[in-house]
Design a protein around this nucleic acid. Structure first.
Lengths: 357, 357
DNA sequence: TACCATTTCGTGTGCGTACACAATCTACAC
DNA sequence: GTGTAGATTGTGTACGCACACGAAATGGTA
């Protein structure tokens, strides 16, 4: 393993000079720079990240802004775990992360959490920009203080974010279309259930539906796609009759696609005998959804690996801060297909981490 | 961030003493040990891995024994890439890895490669134990020299390996069953094509078929499953007629499952019009298979993320060597379902790495 | 008390890099 | 030839930890 010292000796200069050309810090004569660069290449020198980050020791602070989770809205637990795991790992690099949470249905809570966050004077921010108007305010403040930030899970266009880490919703919808398509026979009909409206994830949900519809338009244009829409977050819980009536009226519906993470809520209110002849496709591997999958009620879940999203957000911004590594503007996370037969192999890392804590 | 020094100051001892209790190195009076341990817990002290590994600098050597890849057998390219990536990363930890390859169809080549390998006196070995008899010889030598080793991708029972990293073939077969099941209608028949026999991967292939058959026995016992078997590695290439004839004789076959990574070879020899009404399920995301997926010829591929297998093998054994971290005896890799609609989001890391090199 | 064997502990150095600061060197003006 | 600014390069220290070596403390014995 070649070190900076080795290079320096070879080039008859000091380690400092080698360091200067390694980091393009200037102040080196063209001659020696050339010479050093040649030796660098020849010996295939790679900076020792370990020693490098130890020497840096900038003591950086990251702040994270994400929705709270509880038993009703358990989705955000998974990214939170990923964030925690990454936070622990980057701690060795002298980076510490603080998480601030807010109520995903309350814009004010979003702003308040941010106010607390900004008081800690972070060097970078990782956030889920749920409310678009309030996000504008937030970004303005960040821009003024020159604090870099990245979005994850939810994307919002028109900001100079470092990058977006998350699912491509439209493509996810197409995939849902493919899977639903495989579940049905010619002549069968489909139902899309939108569990609520005008909420933060409207954009993603909307895109998924668009992709879904597009898939069928391209492949089997004759397939009929029904839609049921609920206005309030909890309406699905109470409005089982509506769904059941609808299914009775449209007996050809053989597949239901729920473009949010609430497919388990939907299947809870559908009558047993109806359920048995309908296949369900949903999103996200919340524990409730996994339960439904295990029981065979849900056939497919499309996972966006939200644990990884959280994890990757932290590591990405850390690499940017510590090693000036510019991320791609968009980092799409995999569209993972989860079934009863493979779910247990899919989230082992996440489970392992949850158990440890 | 609390350091050893902080702890030492708090306990009125020197850093050396703290270090001693941290590593159970003995030579510390019970009293001070107790005191230090208390402060350690209270301050939630975590060793800084960065500094730790920098200070260790043990200069360890890993050796890897895997099959070669070429255009005919491209499967092994992917684990090789994963191994290369991990090797680069652990290099900072003072660990270097050397790869030795052999002809996967030639036991002698396997032994020869190992002989070369063992001459380099490695501190640990990562290997794919393809030939069972020869592996016994190899392991005996390793045991004598007290060299730890792990298997990946192919498992062999009865050895005191550190761990096995790879797919659970039986479960993969069950999943293949589920996917095939979704592709067909009641009354349709299935065909399993075994592209060769008595070769190294026989065990895995066999298990996959067993899982596949089991799935249908459990779910739709009436479904008829045909099998076609070829004896020689390349026989499929030439024996298209046999398959086509078989399909003509059994027009109810609507799904073909190929339990090896050679589904693309199979679909190359099937007549176009037959192909159009048959859905194919295969294994592994070789570039040829991905091609067939893109064209819509293959419906599902089950990926074992062999890139990750290679990557994880190296990092696992490194953690064992450097940090004495004992791995679980079995690390199953995910059963990833790949379709035309999601393949591009699935192997981004691997692609990124291939491009860089 | 003097002496020695052990136990217990502190000190110093090195790992590979980053960076501030000091030292040297160059070119040019006088 | 001398002086000086500016360019170029060398040196020292810190990062947090591991480990070797030797110093101090302890305890037991004569």
């Amino acid at each position: 393993m070649t070190t900076i010292k080795d290079i320096a000796k070879e080039a008859n200069v000091s380690a400092g000079t080698v360091d200067r050309v390694l980091h393009n810090r200037g102040g080196v004569s063209p001659k020696t720079e050339e010479k050093i660069k040649k030796i660098l290449k020849q010996k295939n020198f790679k900076i020792n990240m370990i020693a490098s980050s130890l020497a840096m020791k900038k003591h950086l602070k990251i702040a994270t802004l994400i929705p709270q989770f509880d038993h009703q809205n358990i989705f955000w637990k998974s990214p939170y775990s990923g964030i925690q795991k990454a936070s622990q790992e980057v701690n060795s690099y002298g980076v510490e992360n603080h998480v601030f949470t807010f109520d995903q249905f309350n814009p004010k809570s979003y702003l308040n959490a941010f106010k607390k966050l900004i008081k800690t004077e972070p060097d970078a921010v990782v956030m889920v920009p749920i409310f678009s108007k309030e996000t504008s305010e937030i970004i303005e403040i960040l821009n003024k203080s020159d604090i870099p930030y990245l979005f994850f899970n939810v994307d919002l266009k028109g900001f100079n974010k470092l990058c977006y880490i998350g699912q491509k919703s439209y493509d996810a919808g197409i995939l849902a279309g493919k899977l639903s398509h495989l579940c049905i026979s010619p002549g069968d009909e489909l139902l899309v259930i939108l569990t609520r409206k005008n909420l933060y994830d409207h954009e993603a949900v909307h895109e998924r539906v668009k992709g879904f519809v597009h898939y069928f338009k391209e492949n089997t244009p004759k397939t009929k796609i029904h839609q049921l829409q609920f206005e309030q977050p909890d309406e699905v819980e109470t409005g089982g009759e509506i769904i059941n009536e609808f299914l009775t009226k449209n007996p050809n519906i053989k597949n239901i696609m729920v473009p949010s993470s609430r497919v388990s809520h939907v299947c809870k209110v559908i009558e047993q005998k109806k359920l048995s002849q309908i296949k369900l496709v949903g999103f996200d591997t919340t524990s409730q959804n996994i339960e439904a999958l295990k029981k065979g009620i849900v056939t497919f879940l499309i996972s966006q690996k939200s644990f990884n999203q959280g994890y990757k957000s932290i590591t990405t911004i850390t690499n940017y801060l510590v090693h000036k590594e510019m991320p791609k503007n968009e980092i799409p996370t995999p569209l993972e297909i989860i079934t009863k037969e493979n779910f247990e192999f899919s989230h082992s890392e996440e489970r392992k981490y949850s158990m440890e804590n």
